[in-house]
Simulated scan of single mutants.
Amino acid sequence: MELGRLGVWYPADRLDGPGLATLARRVEELGYGTLWYPEARGYESFTLAAHFLASTTRLKVGSSIANIYARDAFTARRGMATLNAFHGGRFILGLGVSHIPMVEGLRGHRYDRPVPAMRAYLDGIQADTGEDWPILLAALGPKMLELAARRTHGAVPYNVTPEHTAIAAGILGPGKVLAVEQKVCLETDPERARALGRAELAHYLALPNYVNNWLRTGFTEADLKDGGSDRFIDGMVVSGDAAAIKAKLAAHFAAGATHVCIQPVHAKGDIAARDAMLAALADS
């Protein structure tokens, strides 16, 4: 699973079809190895992957993540196989258990215990095939990371710090993919960067899966109140000039990441700022 050293993660629901195609081509032109995207309330994950893949020729495309409650395991397997057959093996299936509001509130399913639910889903994908499927897990806690190490190519942790990366690398062990997401903001005014960061992180602060992981990795209850402390925001959204951001990306690699996907944080609709960040960090 060759992802390249750097990738890009972007909230795809913010763009229309032509805008998504333009983003994918720009990411490919700049030399990034992989483009990652979430599955939230808008576009369906596999359809979106097909659009990205059809818009590019070399770029790998990864779901980060495809919600296991959005389609049964057989459908996920056939979708993954179809995308790779049609597009030269360039699709990586990142799977995750999502969050209670997205599963019970939005989809009307019952949110089961995360690790047993993921294990059963992998059983459905991998049973009786003999295939080495290109699967990664959205793993934050130790038990999900252990499952990723045993059953898949590795993990795609989101909203993490280099401290978490070191823990994850230790659990996954050698030979596994550890593709971590890092939010970046090419902004030298700390207050403006923090304001953008708080806006980006606001909805994640209401999701227990992330909150629990942040508490496990050194943040406090106080750090997570009132939109997040400066310490928390600075830890989650790397800001400053390109050199400062590149140093933080290097910290993830030093901690054991095999791939880092950057998420540009910018004002709503500011595509110029997004593209400036992608260009500035492409050779990190």
Rank of each mutant, 00 (worst) to 15 (best):
R14H: 10
L145R: 02
I68F: 07
K246F: 04
G4L: 12
V27I: 12
V8D: 00
G62C: 09
H109Y: 12
Y210R: 02
A257I: 12
L172H: 07
L35A: 05
R119K: 11
A21P: 02
A254M: 05
L30K: 02
R78G: 07
A199D: 15
V97S: 05
S229D: 14
V237K: 08
G62E: 07
T56S: 12
G154W: 01
R274A: 14
A168K: 10
A276H: 04
A222L: 13
G4Y: 06
G170F: 03
P208Y: 11
V115I: 09
M1P: 07
T161P: 03
L53R: 06
G218N: 07
L137H: 00
A138L: 06
K183V: 01
D112V: 05
A193W: 07
A254T: 04
S63H: 07
D241F: 04
N209A: 14
S63C: 13
A85N: 04
H99L: 05
V180F: 03
T75I: 11
N67I: 09
H266A: 15
Y204N: 07
R192K: 15
A49D: 00
L53T: 04
D72N: 15
V8A: 11
K143I: 01
L95R: 10
M236A: 10
L3V: 11
A267P: 01
V184Q: 00
V260I: 13
L178G: 04
Y10T: 14
G235A: 11
C261H: 09
V97A: 14
A251G: 09
R216W: 09
E181Q: 10
V115R: 00
G42H: 07
G154Q: 00
A250Q: 13
G170Y: 04
A272V: 15
L145Y: 07
M80S: 08
Y210A: 08
H266N: 13
G240R: 05
I171S: 00
R58N: 12
G42T: 11
A254D: 14
V177G: 01
T217Q: 15
G197F: 09
G89W: 06
I171E: 06
F91V: 02
A273Q: 10
F46A: 12
E28T: 11
L35P: 02
E187R: 10
V237I: 15
Y121V: 04
R113Y: 08
P208W: 13
G17D: 08
G89Y: 01
P134V: 03
V97K: 14
V160G: 06
K60C: 08
V115Q: 03
V265R: 00
V27C: 01
F46S: 06
A166C: 01
T258E: 07
D128C: 13
E131H: 01
